[in-house]
């Protein structure tokens, strides 16, 4: 029972942190994709969408190579910042963030695209500079879509498995999320414990999806 609570809280923490990590960059990138044209835009678009279609394990392997002890980023974090990533809770957060990033960017981009550019122009003719018009007009009008995207990303992060097991490993009490826990219990034949985690997973996923569906604008009624 204590194990159940611990795993649930750990998973929620990892998903929350992962989502919080991607929101600022995701908002910026989604806005750039929705409102500006720039060289290399198509390449960035594809790169960002890649984790959606790549096997999660493959994404995990790429992350392992990048953030591993001998990887370029891992070396930087370990030697310059003194932070270990691979096979710690941080790796679970990283996997959650990378895997849910495309979902967030796609939803946020649509949210920005649905804001009428004329309203931003009107704001500028009324004396609002670019940042001012973004925060007073664009952001409030896109907010529902952005929050829906955040909830969707959070839901995706809750269930992340493939990339997580590659870079965080299965370390009981240290890196075990709901998804990893289910796999771990089933492997050891502990079906009852697996069922407990499964119930919680279903409840959390259901709640997150339900909220994000309520937030997204109905296009059918328009």
């Amino acid at each position: 029972m204590a194990d159940l609570l611990h795993v649930t809280l750990f998973t929620l923490g990892v998903a929350l942190l992962g989502t919080a990590l991607i929101v600022p960059a995701g908002v910026a990138l989604a806005w750039l994709l929705a409102r500006r044209s720039w060289p290399g835009k198509a390449v960035v678009e594809t790169l960002v969408a890649l984790p959606l279609v790549l096997p999660p394990v493959a994404t995990g392997l790429i992350l392992l190579k990048l953030f591993g002890r001998h990887g370029p980023l891992g070396h930087f974090f370990e030697h310059t910042l003194g932070i270990d990533i691979i096979f710690t809770w941080r790796a679970a957060v990283l996997a959650a963030a990378v895997m849910s990033f495309p979902l967030f960017v796609r939803t946020a981009r649509v949210a920005f695209e649905e804001v009428d550019p004329r309203l931003e122009q009107a704001a500028r003719t009324l004396g609002a500079g670019p940042w001012d018009s973004f925060f007073s007009v664009t952001l409030p009008l896109a907010l529902r879509g952005l929050v829906a995207g955040g909830v969707l990303a959070f839901a995706r992060a809750l269930g992340e498995f493939g990339a997580t097991i590659m870079i965080a490993g299965l370390i009981p009490g240290k890196t075990i999320t709901l998804a990893l826990g289910i796999y771990h219990h089933v492997q050891l034949g502990r079906d009852a414990q697996a069922a407990g985690l499964l119930t919680i997973s279903i409840a959390l996923a259901f709640a997150a999806l339900w909220i994000s569906e309520r937030l997204l604008p109905r296009r059918t009624s328009a």
């Binding site: 004329r118 309203l119 122009q121 009107a122 704001a123 003719t125 007009v137 009008l141």
Partner: peptide, 11 residues
């Protein structure tokens, strides 16, 4: 500037 469709802020 008065736009053809008014462009009022709906929020």
């Amino acid at each position: 500037y008065v736009f053809q469709d008014a462009a009022l802020f709906p929020h």
